Computed example of a mutant assay.
Amino acid sequence: MESAAKVKLWSDLSTSLVVSGQEVDSASLLTDLQLADSQEISGPGGVGVYSGPGWATLTVDGRHAESADEQAAELVRIISPRKSALEALKKAGKSMKVDVSGVAESGSGIGISPQVLAGLAELGVPVTFTTVRESGEDEEDPLAWLG
């Protein structure tokens, strides 16, 4: 376990349920997931709903929890009682996934516990990981030695 402690973790993490399809926006996602009057969304920062053309997310970010494990656990806690709503969204032709995203450097990692992974699996939606690099940081070109 000593080597695991030395791994640099991803930064600027967020964990989201991403729903896409026609007529998807923040209001419809809140309604479909039965969260319109929920204290979980209107409470303190770090859990929110965001949208763009044809997509919406229920997102847990670093203001609520810094680790991917804690963020995913919170998302599972909010969504698990609403699995029937997820099924209804699927039947309506909506595409869904849980996405863990953050800024990653070479050799960095994230940790998600087996219990939280099991909770994500029970949701029945794919889980993806999206990494970005900090802007302004030079990416190493593996062919630079060719001159």
Results as ranks from 00 to 15, higher is better:
3 S>I: 14
4 A>L: 13
4 A>R: 06
6 K>P: 00
7 V>G: 01
8 K>R: 12
10 W>M: 11
11 S>K: 10
11 S>Q: 10
13 L>M: 15
13 L>E: 12
13 L>N: 03
14 S>D: 14
15 T>I: 10
16 S>A: 15
16 S>I: 03
18 V>A: 10
19 V>A: 04
19 V>R: 10
22 Q>L: 09
23 E>H: 12
24 V>S: 02
25 D>Y: 07
26 S>F: 00
28 S>E: 03
29 L>I: 01
30 L>T: 12
30 L>G: 15
30 L>V: 03
30 L>S: 13
31 T>M: 09
32 D>Y: 01
33 L>T: 07
34 Q>K: 15
35 L>G: 04
35 L>N: 01
38 S>T: 07
39 Q>I: 08
39 Q>A: 15
40 E>S: 06
40 E>G: 02
42 S>V: 04
42 S>I: 02
43 G>E: 05
43 G>I: 01
44 P>K: 11
45 G>N: 07
45 G>S: 11
46 G>A: 11
46 G>W: 07
46 G>L: 08
47 V>G: 08
47 V>P: 02
49 V>P: 02
49 V>W: 02
50 Y>N: 10
53 P>E: 00
54 G>W: 05
56 A>L: 06
56 A>P: 04
56 A>N: 01
57 T>W: 09
57 T>V: 03
58 L>G: 01
59 T>N: 09
59 T>P: 14
59 T>G: 09
61 D>S: 01
61 D>N: 15
62 G>I: 04
62 G>D: 11
63 R>G: 08
65 A>S: 06
66 E>L: 13
67 S>V: 11
68 A>S: 08
69 D>R: 09
69 D>V: 05
70 E>F: 05
70 E>C: 02
71 Q>F: 12
72 A>Y: 02
73 A>G: 09
73 A>T: 02
73 A>P: 00
75 L>K: 00
76 V>M: 03
76 V>F: 03
80 S>R: 09
82 R>M: 06
82 R>K: 10
83 K>F: 01
83 K>S: 07
85 A>I: 10
87 E>A: 11
87 E>D: 13
88 A>V: 13
89 L>I: 03
90 K>H: 12
90 K>A: 14
91 K>H: 04
93 G>E: 11
96 M>R: 07
97 K>R: 14
98 V>G: 08
99 D>R: 14
103 V>K: 14
104 A>L: 04
105 E>L: 08
106 S>C: 03
107 G>H: 13
108 S>T: 12
109 G>E: 05
109 G>V: 13
109 G>H: 13
109 G>P: 07
109 G>C: 05
110 I>S: 05
110 I>K: 05
111 G>W: 09
112 I>A: 01
112 I>G: 01
112 I>Y: 00
113 S>L: 02
114 P>N: 06
115 Q>T: 13
117 L>C: 10
117 L>Y: 02
121 A>K: 12
121 A>P: 00
123 L>F: 03
124 G>D: 10
124 G>L: 07
126 P>H: 08
127 V>Y: 05
129 F>K: 01
129 F>P: 00
131 T>D: 06
132 V>F: 07
132 V>P: 00
133 R>E: 12
134 E>G: 15
135 S>C: 00
135 S>M: 06
137 E>Q: 12
138 D>M: 08
138 D>N: 12
140 E>R: 14
140 E>L: 15
144 A>F: 10
145 W>S: 14
145 W>Y: 14
145 W>H: 11
146 L>S: 12
147 G>Q: 07
147 G>V: 10
